[in-house]
Structures are given as C-alpha cells and as structure tokens.
C-alpha cells in the first residue's frame, strides 16, 4: 500500500509537470499579448512593461523561470487586478468555492445514494421510476440552466432566497442545489446499478438464507458492498462540480475561483488562466489520489492484497 501511494505521488508530480508545461507553451502560442490592444502605450512603455513581466526573455528562459516559481508555490502574477500574485487571488477566493463545492458534493452524494438505493430495492416499481426520472433530470439539465431557473423563481420571483451576492449560509443554498443536481444524478444511477448487481449476488442470497430480514440484508450486506464502488466516482464528480461552479458562481455573483477563472478568460489574463489551470489540476489530482487510497482502505480485497488467491 505504501509503495502504491508513493508511486501515485510520483505520478502526481509528473502529471502536474506535464500539465504546467503544456499550459505554458499553449499560452506562448497565443498571438499578441494582453497589452496589444492597449494603444495608449508607447513602444518604450510596452518594453518596460514586458520586461517587468519577463516577457522580453527567450521562451526557454521564461519557461525555466515559470517552473522554478511553481516549485516555490508561485503561480505567477496577474496581468489585471493590480499585479496581484495568482496565489493571493486564489487565497482570497478559495473559501466560497470550497464551501459550495463541498456542500454540493455532500448533498449530491448523500441524496444520490439514498435515491439509488431506494430505486434498487424497489426495482421496477413506481419508486424506481420516480428515482430514475429524478436522476436523469439531474444528469441532463445543465447546472447553468438550473441555476438561472432557481435564481429566477426561488429568489427573484418568490423571494425565498437571496438573488445573488455572498454573505451568509442562505446565499449558498441555491448555488449548492444547482451544483448538486449533476452529482446527485450520477451517484443515484451508479448506486442503483451497483446495488441491483449486489442484490442479485450469491452472498445476498446467502444472507437471506441465514434468516436476515429484508431490512437487515440491505443494511448489513447490500449497502456496504454497493457503496464501495461509489467511492470511485467521487473524482469525476469533483470535476463536474468544478465545471459547474464556473458558471454557477458567475450567475450568483459569488466571489469564488470559478468566477475568477471565467473573468480571466474573458479578459485574456493569461497568467491567471495558467495559474488557475494548474491549481485546478492539482486539486483534482489530489482528489483522485485520496479517493484511490480511500477505496483501497475500505475494500478489504484491495487493502489485503490483490483479488482472491486460489
């Protein structure tokens, strides 16, 4: 297990290195600079500014500098926002994003598991149909459509929640719901498939043959066995929540990283785009790593050596 984790951490850094390099060179491919449309600058001024950002050096020197900076945790400096370091931007904006992201993951997973389990246990009944319908809706309606609808009806028209802005827990509810829909749908579907599979397995039959009541069969044997694989989709779910957060934060004017990312895209703030890209990748790779380790820890077949021995 330790060897496996070390190997994974090595790959984590390798992947990050590749991502950082790719991002860097992609950005260098871009025609022009963010200053090219600022006509007010004279060529001399432009030179000074370029030197200030190190843009007058050769691409290779810039690359080495950038990577060196990364090693020290420096993600570069924004072209906008008074030359603020990207890390500082992230620092200021991390909390709201993390809060709604985490809330959405928890809400989506918990309700998804419940929905999926109910659907599996009541397979081919109206409860199953309803649960499947809800999860398909969650999967199919893009979070930004949902966000706009929620905002309009629940906040603007019926005034149950604040329309936008970020001050208290109340203001996090609508964005959380908008973001949770997709993970909820994903988990519910996955859970249903897993649990239907588990419920038809021989060991569930044996659990019934032991005299367990249907409730006990589910709680003692079926749930645990179907939950283990659900852990594996936490990673992809984190991706979808992150994707959603970019627009959802925008719609609800939440001062988070997603909103920042979209803003830097529209303002051609390349250092911020690069910095955030690397940061996002880092975050997700860490999530994947944690999920893998977690999976190994809770599944005895992996924890105690591979597969079955004959």
């Amino acid at each position: 297990m330790t060897k496996y984790i070390l190997k994974r951490i090595f790959y984590l850094f390798l992947t990050l290195f590749i991502i950082a390099s790719l991002t860097f060179f992609l950005m260098k491919l871009l025609p022009g600079t963010p200053f090219s449309n600022q006509n007010r600058m004279s060529p001399d001024q432009l030179k000074i500014v370029k030197a200030q950002y190190g843009l007058d050096q050769s691409v290779f020197v810039q690359y080495v500098r950038y990577m060196g900076g990364l090693l020290q945790g420096n993600l570069g400096t924004s072209f906008q926002f008074n030359n603020e370091p990207v890390t500082a931007l992230i620092g200021q904006r991390l909390a709201p994003s993390m809060q709604i992201g985490a809330q959405a993951m928890v809400v989506g997973t918990v309700f998804g598991i419940l929905l999926g389990a109910v659907a599996a246990i009541r397979k081919n009944t109206w409860a199953d149909t309803l649960a499947t319908f809800v999860s398909i809706l969650g999967l199919s309606i893009p979070s930004f459509v949902l966000a706009v609808l929620l905002q309009f009806y629940l906040a603007y028209k019926w005034r149950i929640f604040p329309v936008a802005l970020w001050d208290n827990f109340q203001s996090s509810i609508l964005p959380t719901i908008a973001l949770a829909a997709l993970p909820l749908g994903t988990v519910a579907r996955f859970m249903r498939t897993e649990m239907v599979d588990v419920m038809s397995s021989d060991y569930i039959e044996l659990a019934k043959a032991k005299g367990n009541s249907s409730w006990k069969v589910v709680t003692k044997h079926a749930l645990r066995n179907s939950l283990i694989p659900v852990v594996t989709i936490i990673g992809p779910m984190a991706v979808s929540v992150m994707t959603g957060s970019m627009v959802v934060e925008n719609i609800f004017s939440i001062p988070g990283i997603g909103e920042q990312f979209v803003k830097s895209i529209t303002t051609n703030d390349y250092p911020t785009i690069m910095g955030l890209t690397i940061f996002y990748s880092f975050l997700l790779i860490i999530v994947y790593l944690i999920v893998d380790i977690l999976y190994g820890l809770i599944d005895p077949r992996i924890r105690l050596g591979n597969g079955g021995k004959e």
């Binding site: 060991y203 032991k210 066995n225 005895p300």
Partner: peptide, 20 residues
C-alpha cells in the same frame, strides 16, 4: 426458519460469501 431450522449451501463458494 431460514438459517435456523432450514439452512442452505450454495453452489459457488467463490461468490457466496460477503467479500467485505
């Protein structure tokens, strides 16, 4: 009655036991 008065052994021991 199940597992108490009447109990059962299944065909495939590889899949009859709860893996977790």
């Amino acid at each position: 009655l199940r597992g108490n008065k009447i109990s059962m052994i299944f065909q495939d021991p590889m899949t009859s036991l709860d893996p977790t």
